[in-house]
């Protein structure tokens, strides 16, 4: 009866500890084939290790309690079977399994017959992600801090860096892969269920490393095609006078020297800058500043006015010299760019 209670308590504690393991960003909550293999692998190591630990402790207890029996057993037998044979067999099996897992999680390998993977280029920089989709017909669409992918299809992510080493990690989809200046690494991911999951830079890259996150949005295949088609369009042209004023203020404030808004490439204040994220469809993104703030007119105004306070050391200056009407009209304009 006592034992039951203890077991219950242990299970409850374990459940509590594991409650943190599901959700938007969780190694133990796989949403695709590669992460599923990795989770299986982790569980095997965990339970295998736990069993061996329990067995070792049992042996120790036997050695301490049944001294007669241990005296009669020749020690050499224990050493040969448990000290040599068991580890050799176990470690060999694990080596083979590890090699197999390594191949299984490499989704880019040996599927030449099937649907070609979607190619997405991700360029890391302090402290955000530039994301470029290849539509397969030679066209590209650039956005930022969000990876939209179709479910059930492989996505080949080409990873590069513009400054220091970063690391691309979506725990629910795959392991980590570094972004190294001067070279391109590739990782192939696949999501099996639609939904939003979170990824994050996993290699310390500077002051705001912790605020360099992104979201992966997995769509059903048709929804993804629609999404991509919409993103291929240039920015929405404002009609309401309020938003027209916002667009004018956006350009006059010089935002376009660091940001692209496709459709605003003409004129003295063109929005063609390459330093910051593409804002063509910024209003439809889930977050601002690589997961720093949720998206919306309020957070947009806050970010424009005080980017250095909200994410000190990032490359965008605070624009609190803008008069307050200009600030809010730019925020409303950007919010309308869906």
């Amino acid at each position: 009866m006592r034992g039951r209670h203890v077991l219950g308590a242990v299970l409850a504690l374990a459940a509590l500890a594991l409650a943190g393991c599901t959700g938007q960003q969780a190694v133990l909550d796989p949403r695709g084939p590669a992460a599923a293999h990795l989770a299986e692998f982790s569980w095997l190591l965990f339970w295998g290790g736990a069993a061996i630990f329990a067995f070792t402790m049992a042996m120790l207890a036997i050695g301490l309690v049944f001294t007669d029996w241990t005296k009669r057993t020749p020690p050499i037998r224990l050493v040969v079977w448990l000290g040599l044979a068991f580890p050799v067999v176990t470690l060999l099996a694990l080596t083979v399994y590890t090699a197999a897992v390594g191949r299984w999680v490499d989704l880019g390998r040996g599927q030449d017959g099937g649907e070609p993977p979607l190619r997405v280029d991700v360029v890391g920089q302090q402290y955000w992600w530039e994301v470029t989709y290849h539509d397969g017909q030679g066209g590209t669409v650039t956005s930022a801090n969000e990876l939209n992918i179709p479910v059930g299809r492989r996505v080949e992510v080409h990873l590069a860096s513009r400054d220091v080493i970063h690391s691309f990690w979506v725990p629910s989809l795959h392991g980590k892969m570094d972004l190294i200046p001067g070279r391109t690494n590739t990782i192939t991911i696949q999501a099996d269920t639609p939904g939003v999951i979170r990824g994050q830079c996993a290699e310390f890259c500077g002051e705001q490393h912790a605020l360099m996150a992104f979201f992966v949005v997995a769509h059903e295949s048709a929804a993804f095609e629609a999404w991509l088609a919409a993103r291929r369009q240039p920015a929405r042209v404002p009609e309401m006078p309020d938003l027209v004023a916002g667009q004018r203020a956006f350009l006059a404030a010089g935002c376009g020297s660091c940001h692209v808004v496709r459709g605003l490439a003409e004129g003295p204040y063109a929005a063609v800058g390459q330093l910051g994220p593409d804002l063509t469809h910024v209003g439809s993104r889930l977050s601002l500043a690589a997961g720093t703030l949720p998206n919306g007119v309020g957070p947009l105004a806050a970010w424009i006015a005080d980017a250095q306070d909200l994410k000190p050391g990032n490359r965008m200056p605070s624009f609190h010299h803008l008069d307050s009407e200009t600030l809010t009209s730019i925020a409303r304009y950007l919010g309308s760019l869906e």
Binding site: V297, S324, E325, L327, T328, A331, R332
Partner: peptide, 14 residues
């Protein structure tokens, strides 16, 4: 903005 269109606080959509 109903109170003062010149305020730096935007209508947030709340």
């Amino acid at each position: 903005r109903l109170v003062d269109p010149r305020s730096a606080m935007p209508a947030t959509g709340i």
